[in-house]
Structure formats: C-alpha cells, structure tokens
Design a protein around this nucleic acid. Structure first.
Lengths: 139, 139
DNA sequence: ATAAGTCTTATAGTACACTCTAAGTCAAGG
DNA sequence: CCTTGACTTAGAGTGTACTATAAGACTTAT
C-alpha cells in the first residue's frame, strides 16, 4: 500500500510554476479538479502535475482558455467524445501552424530590415536605396 | 509635376485594413503622422501605406506598441540613432525567434497527442497506454 | 500558543491593444 | 442644400487571462 503523494496548493504552485491564484482560477474555469481532504483542503497529485503540464503545452500552442474548457468537458463526457476531442486538437494544431507561418513571414521582413541596416552601416548598399526597393529583391 | 495621391482617413483605412479608430489611436501613440490639408483634415500618402505595412510586419513578429513607439522616436531623432534602431530590431528578432521555437515545441506535444488519438482510434496502440507513457518515447 | 497557511465569495485591478460613443463643429460632394 | 464624412477631447467598453484584495473562519506546523 504505497500512499500517493499529496501536494497542497502552495507546494503544487511551486511545482508547476503557476500562482495559487491561477490554480484556483483554473479550478473555477473547470480546467483542473484537485481532490479534497477530510477538512476540505485541496490537494494535488502527480497526475495533476502531468495534466497541468499538458495544459501548459496546449496553452503554449496558443489555445484559448475557452477551447481548453471545451476539451476538458469532452474528456469528462467519456470515450464517445474522442473524435470531437481529436477534432478540437486538430484545430489547435492548424491554428498554431498558421500562427507560426505568419510569424516566420513577418520575421523574414524584420530580418531583411536588419540586413538593410547592416548594409547601410557597412555602406555596402547604396545610401539612397529604400527599404522597399531592397525588399523587392526577395519577391 | 505629378501630384502625389492623397488618401483621406476612410479610404486609407480600407487600403491598410485598419479602422479609422485604430489609425487615430496609432497617431496618438506617435506611430503614424499623417499630413494635414489647409482645413486640418488628415491625409495619407503611399509612403504612409508602406510605413503602415512595415509597422504591421513588426507587430506581426510580436513587437509591442511601446517598442514600436521607441523605434519611431529613434527614427525621428536622425541618423545618429541607427545603431540603437538596429539593436531594437535585433531584440525583436531574437524575441520572435524564441517565440517561434517555443510554439514549435508545444506544437510537437500537440502533434504527439493527436498521433496518440489516432493510434487509439485505429486500435494500433494499446488502449491502456497513457499519453505520458507514449510521450516518453520521444524524450 | 501562535504564526502561517488554507478556505470561502465576491469584487476590483492590471495589462494590452484596440474599439466605440458622445457631442458639438466644420467641410466636401452630388 | 443637405447628407455624409471629418474634426476634436475625453472617457467608457471589450476581450483575454490573469492577479490581487478583503474579511472572516478554520487548520496545520513549529
């Protein structure tokens, strides 16, 4: 009978890097459901650490709290919702890929601008050359 | 003497895809300085279109309004600020690259989770295999 | 025993970047 | 001429995701 390690909110807070405020907020939003001891005190387990870890990864893809809530609701509704959950994640995947692509495109312009500054500083491109003219080289 | 095309705020708004509210807001923030006609009416030119285009690219890298304002201020202060401007853009570049890398790492986890769902749906991995176990394969 | 931690609900504040309204004046186009 | 659009300042509202406080009760740790 190995007893499962129980974390109180402040310890758990340190472990997962979220404030106790945020943990209670997530609980209110239904994103995490800690257990309660005989006195009504919250406790969290390693399973909760893993779950929060996954939540943070999802959030890190840009997924909104609302989508996260939907996902949790589907999870709670049982195996019948597996296709719906997969669809939700696939949407997040698509959105994240699009977001990355957009960032990269914008970064490209920024890179060119820095190149231009470097060119100007090195006097290796004409002083009069405008950024727009310069950019046309890459179109 | 080819006269330069002047755009009123509503036309310009349509051209650049920003509301007139946003254009005035950007002006308040010092991000854009439209010209004024004899009656005090704003007008914008093709140079402003290009500038807003660049601004949107910078914003698209994740640059904050405050950084943008700094950049504009430096620009207005003349050529002596070129190194500072370059540094500001280099910082934005670094931040953007870091952001992209982080998104990609999180996307990776999402991809794996979707693979896991697909595995489960195909019954090609054991029903009992947990996501965490699965993920360990990639560590 | 006492300090520190946790519990509750409700509410307010923060940050960012808009987004919109009011209210009154003035200008431009058909 | 008259509707549509532009001007002004100042302030309120929106959305997202926290972040914090109050206040009173109760628990846990030293």
């Amino acid at each position: 009978m190995t007893r499962v390690k129980k974390y109180k909110i402040s310890e758990f807070s340190r472990l997962v890097g979220l404030s106790t405020f945020t943990l209670r907020y997530y609980e209110n939003e239904g994103i995490i459901k800690p257990h309660r001891d005989h006195n009504g005190m919250r406790y969290y387990t390693t399973a909760d650490i893993k779950w929060i870890g996954f939540v943070l990864h999802l959030k890190g893809t840009g997924m909104k709290i609302t989508a996260l809530k939907e996902y949790v609701a589907l999870r709670a509704a049982g195996d019948a919702t597996i296709p719906a959950r997969r669809a939700l994640l696939a949407q997040a995947q698509k959105d994240c890929e699009a977001e990355i692509a957009e960032r990269q495109a914008n970064l490209q312009v920024l890179n060119h601008k820095i190149d231009w500054y470097d060119g100007k500083l090195d006097a290796s491109i004409a002083e009069t050359e405008s950024f727009e003219t310069y950019l046309k080289r890459f179109e």
